[in-house]
Design a protein around this nucleic acid. Structure first.
Lengths: 343, 343
DNA sequence: ACCATCAGTCAAAGCGCTTTGGATGTCCGC
DNA sequence: GCGGACATCCAAAGCGCTTTGACTGATGGT
């Protein structure tokens, strides 16, 4: 069933039917009703390709997921992020198109996306500190919003980010107040902007307290469970092991917990652990009492907000760079406690 | 830059340029080369919407993700699955479009997808035992492949599934051979087909061994960490606690491990645990020695294969219902051991 | 009674591509 | 030197929609 058939069926022109369905005022309410009912009955929905060819809007948003060949990991936050964004899109009548791309061929891809024209905008995931996608997209005039920021990019652009620096500063402060002095940082890959900022929050807070960080207690890698396990296991085997861990993700924190238990220690008593918690739907940090003390920031909410920003930007490209900084809450669980006194 | 401009630039007709770029034989190699080079230089790529309007092929595949309002969880396997599928699509020049849908409005959505015509086929995720999407899509004549199966659907359809029954039967057998008699099953939601099959594998193996399952040792829910934790904690508090756990996912198994440790027990010595392992990139089951004994089946590979099947089906709709059953490997880790003798 | 206005409708052009059905020129065999 | 075969190219129609510009009656003010 297409427009031509429907209009013939109704003894109306395509113009009128189109206008009736799209809510234009120059068609009488009576015919509009008649058209609506016929469309419903005959199960007509307009062909999206034709529509977007005619209007120049694709009604779709692109998400480009970098799958580097070196780091094969798929970001576990992805599902929840997409769920949040998808919700917004669905409400606005937009679709979400995913492109996976090996990060070596990124530039080409974005140019193609632009030329092929089947999205009206894109969201950039996992920005690195120096993010060349940002100037590229600006040049291409393709609306975009970044999930995170790129510290080394100075031109304005739209982004939404968690206040990672502040979150990790607060967490560090919290551990210091509990008396911890040897605090380990199990961070994400530090060319990723979020990880860089978290380290800054950590280091600056230590500095303010007159402490210097021990490089042996700082790691940076992809945030897997194994990585957390190994890092914590190795560090706990030191002569002067850390009394606290600051960890970049729940998954990694689970690995840390494993190492802690394996060493015969208990979280919250012998060793304190704070983790960042993206509030993933399948990995809730406890229900009543959180397992981990954590800096929490819902990635699903972030997805929803980011999508809204991008849609705004598409509707009115002039509404200028939009930015939003989400604060993470520090929630207290049972994984932290006073630093053990050297008995 | 569009076709008209490009062809004018080359002093050729749109026809010739189009044919040159699409590899038709009726254009000389010399002009083809000239056209290719100009296209490259001017950064021309065809408008996908116009192309698909003209050809009737969208060169895109739809993935419909059910987000039920009751069960808000986003399936954690999603990221890896999509990475596998996306890889195949990218290679074939297809795009992936995601639609999230509240499962109450599913039928409408599929009809719309069909009518709007911006995908050439869809993959069905998370089939339930009685899956009405299957007859619906057959009726709509929209090519589709199911990730999993629907036990109560009798009409033929294309699917790719892990042999869940066999996997859990083998795991159960393995535990029985180690002397375990009280085995707990921490399963996924049992209206989901995969969970149903796993339970069947578990129960039938017990039956063969002349044992009957204790309902108090069987749970079924969304596969979160908390769920694993609570289930195991409760069960371990029984008068006659289980000596082994069969768990439906790694995430849930991490919760089980937490409960085991909290009870002062050790996995592999006091309590055995086997889990299903989807081989997620961010949750590898150990490197050299697996943490958990597990039935392993890569969901990323499944995504890649499924995508291939669907593309085949689209190229040649006649190539009939395609089906593929992947066997899970049983890998032995340190979480299992002989049943403790009642000393 | 007459023109301006306006609500309601329509035919046709256009979005950027593919593809059908020629048209043109070239080369060969006879 | 002529008809066919073949290679190479083209004009135009069509994909399903939106949108421009125009047309028709009815209404109302003077």
């Amino acid at each position: 069933m297409n427009l031509k058939e429907l209009s013939r069926h109704l003894n109306l022109s395509q113009t009128t039917v189109s206008r009736a369905l799209n809510g234009y005022p120059e068609v009488s309410e009576k015919t509009r009703k008649r058209v609506r009912e016929a469309a419903e009955a005959l199960n007509y929905s307009p062909n999206a390709r034709a529509k977007s060819l005619a209007t120049g809007r694709a009604h779709a948003i692109g998400h480009v997921i970098p799958i580097s060949t070196k780091h094969e990991m798929v970001n576990p936050i992805f599902g929840d992020f997409v769920a949040g964004a998808g919700d917004t899109y669905a409400r606005a009548g937009y679709e979400m198109v995913l492109s996976l791309v090996d990060d070596s061929r990124e530039e080409d891809l974005y140019r193609q996306i632009r030329a092929r024209g089947n999205v009206d905008g894109v969201v950039i995931h996992g920005p690195r500190m120096a993010e060349d996608r940002i100037p590229l997209l600006s040049e291409l005039q393709l609306p975009f919003v970044v999930h995170g920021r790129a510290s080394e990019v100075n031109t304005p652009y739209s982004w939404l980010d968690t206040n990672n620096t502040r979150a990790f500063a607060r967490a560090t402060r919290f551990l210091l107040d509990l008396g911890h002095r040897r605090i380990a940082l199990i961070n994400g890959l530090e060319h990723m902007d979020f990880a860089f900022r978290r380290r800054e929050g950590f280091l600056s807070t230590l500095r303010e307290a007159g402490l210097t960080a021990d490089p042996a207690l700082m790691r940076s890698s992809e945030m897997t469970e194994i990585y957390g396990y190994r890092s914590a296991r190795d560090m706990l085997a030191h002569d002067t092991p850390p009394t606290a861990f600051l960890v970049a993700s729940m998954i990694t924190a689970l690995g840390v917990r494993r190492a802690v238990h394996e060493a015969g220690l208990e979280m919250g008593r012998d060793v304190s652990v704070i983790t960042h918690d993206d509030d993933l739907s399948y990995l809730k940090n406890g229900h009543d009492v959180p397992i981990f003390t954590a800096t929490r920031s819902s990635v699903r909410d972030a997805g929803a907000r980011l999508a809204e920003m991008l849609l705004d930007l598409i509707r009115d490209p002039g509404c200028g760079p939009l930015t939003e900084l989400m604060e993470a809450e520090l929630i207290i669980g049972s994984s932290t406690g006073p630093a053990p006194t050297k008995a």
